[in-house]
């Protein structure tokens, strides 16, 4: 599954970040890395873009970009 499949109140873990280099570079610079926990925190009227809580920050991603981030559901 990818970030856009994350539903409210689910906690996920980042498995991999794909996509073009500048997207990866940008996410990396923001501290979005493999192994981090993610939650969906807000969504606009159109469902795009959405905001994800990643660590101590909230990051706003368009769905096209969010699709590049592979995640898995956390059990806890």
């Amino acid at each position: 599954m990818t970030l856009i499949d994350v539903a409210k109140k689910q906690t996920c873990r980042i498995l991999a970040i794909k996509g073009p280099d500048n997207l990866r570079q940008r996410l990396t610079a923001l501290g979005v890395l493999r192994g981090q926990k993610v939650r969906l925190s807000a969504s606009t009227l159109w469902g795009d873009p959405r905001t994800y809580a990643i660590g101590r920050q909230q990051i706003c991603l368009r769905n096209d970009d969010a699709r590049m981030v592979e995640v898995e559901l956390c059990n806890d």
Binding site: Q36, K37, R39, S41, A42, S43, T44, L45, T51, A53, G55, R56, Q57, Q58
Partner: peptide, 20 residues
């Protein structure tokens, strides 16, 4: 143990229907 930083204001301001 990373705690997610969320704020009650966001639940109003970024609410899907109330935001705009």
């Amino acid at each position: 143990e990373i705690s997610f930083a969320e704020h009650w204001l966001d639940s109003v301001v970024l609410n899907r229907w109330l935001g705009l």
